[in-house]
C-alpha cells in the first residue's frame, strides 16, 4: 500500500491498532463496493488516515468481524454503521488516483507508459462516476494539479510556495463537511500542515532519483544540490523544514476535539 502518513504502531494500544486496521479494511471494502474490485488496489495509507480523522471526529464507530475476501485465513474487522466518511474517502481515492495515473502516463518511460495507457479507460469510467458524486472535489483537485504544474515549470524553489497547493488541497479535504466556522478553520489547518508535510517528505525522499533523472525537485533547486554527496551537507536543514511543519501539525491537532481514535490520530509517524 502506498502513502507517507503511517501510524507509530508501537506507541498505540493493541485494541487501537485493530481499530486502525478495521478502518482500512472498511475503506478497502467500500472501494470495492462502489468502484469495483480493481479499485481496492488504489487504497493508500494517506487516505486511510483521512478516514481515521473523519471517523474520529464523528465517533459512534463499532466494528464487527469478518474475513478478508482476498485471504480467507485473515480475520478482518469492518465498521458496523453507515459511513458517509468512508464513502467520501473512497471517492477522493479514485479522483486522486486517476490524476496520478495521468501524471504517470506523462512522466513514465516507454513500457510503463503502455501499461498505464492500457488501464486508463477502465479508471476513466470510475473517475467519471466519482466526478458525478463529488464535482466540487474534482474541481479542487484539478486546480491543485494546475497550480502545482505551474510552480514546477517556473522552477520555484520557495518551499512555502511549492508546498502550498498540496497543503491547501488537504486542508479542504480535512475541513470538508464541517458546518461550524471556527471548527472548520481548525480542521483546515490540520489538513494544511499535513498536506505540506506530505509534499516535503515526498520531495526529500525523491532527491536521489530526481538528481539522476533531472526531474523537478524543490530542495535540489533551493540548495543547488548537484550530486548525492552535497545532499548530506543540507540534510539536517531540509529535515528541519519538515519537522517544523510536523510540529505545527501536532499543535493544530490540539485545537480539535475527537470523539474516538484520538490516540491513534495523535501518533502519526512524522
Amino acid at each position: 500500500m502506498y502513502g507517507k502518513v503511517r501510524i507509530n504502531v508501537p506507541e498505540i494500544k493493541v485494541r487501537e491498532y485493530d481499530e486502525y486496521k478495521g478502518i482500512y479494511c472498511s475503506l478497502c471494502k467500500i472501494l470495492g463496493k462502489r468502484y469495483g474490485v480493481l479499485a481496492r488496489a488504489l487504497l493508500t495509507y494517506d487516505l486511510t488516515y483521512l478516514a481515521l480523522f473523519l471517523l474520529g471526529l464523528n465517533g459512534s464507530c463499532v466494528f464487527r468481524s469478518g474475513r478478508c475476501p482476498f485471504n480467507f485465513t485473515k480475520k478482518c474487522h469492518y465498521l458496523d454503521r453507515k459511513s458517509p466518511e468512508l464513502e467520501f474517502c473512497a471517492d477522493v481515492t479514485v479522483i486522486l488516483a486517476y490524476h496520478k495515473l495521468l501524471d504517470n502516463i506523462h512522466d513514465s518511460g516507454f513500457w510503463k507508459r503502455i501499461l498505464y495507457t492500457l488501464i486508463r479507460p477502465y479508471f476513466a469510467l470510475k473517475y467519471k462516476k466519482a466526478k458525478k458524486l463529488r464535482p466540487d472535489i474534482c474541481n479542487d483537485v484539478s486546480e491543485y494539479i494546475i497550480a502545482q504544474q505551474n510552480l514546477e515549470s517556473q522552477k520555484c524553489s520557495d518551499l512555502d510556495e511549492i508546498s502550498k497547493p498540496t497543503a491547501e488541497l488537504l486542508g479542504k479535504l480535512a475541513a470538508y463537511g464541517e458546518f461550524n466556522t471556527e471548527i472548520k478553520l481548525n480542521r483546515y489547518r490540520i489538513g494544511f500542515c499535513l498536506g505540506r508535510w506530505i509534499y516535503l517528505k515526498d520531495a526529500i525522499d525523491d532527491i536521489d532519483e530526481d538528481i539522476k533523472s533531472e526531474n523537478y525537485n524543490p530542495f535540489v533547486l533551493k540548495y543547488k544540490i548537484s550530486d548525492l554527496s552535497e545532499k548530506e551537507k543540507y540534510l539536517e536543514e531540509m529535515n528541519a523544514q519538515l519537522n517544523i511543519t510536523a510540529g505545527a501539525f501536532i499543535d493544530a491537532l490540539d485545537e480539535v476535539t475527537f470523539l474516538q481514535f484520538e490516540n491513534i490520530i495523535n501518533f502519526v509517524n512524522l
Binding site: 528541519a240 519537522n243 510536523a246 510540529g247 499543535d251
Partner: peptide, 8 residues
C-alpha cells in the same frame, strides 16, 4: 525545538 524533532 520542533525543527530538531521536539514535537515527538
Amino acid at each position: 525545538a520542533d525543527a530538531a524533532g521536539g514535537y515527538r
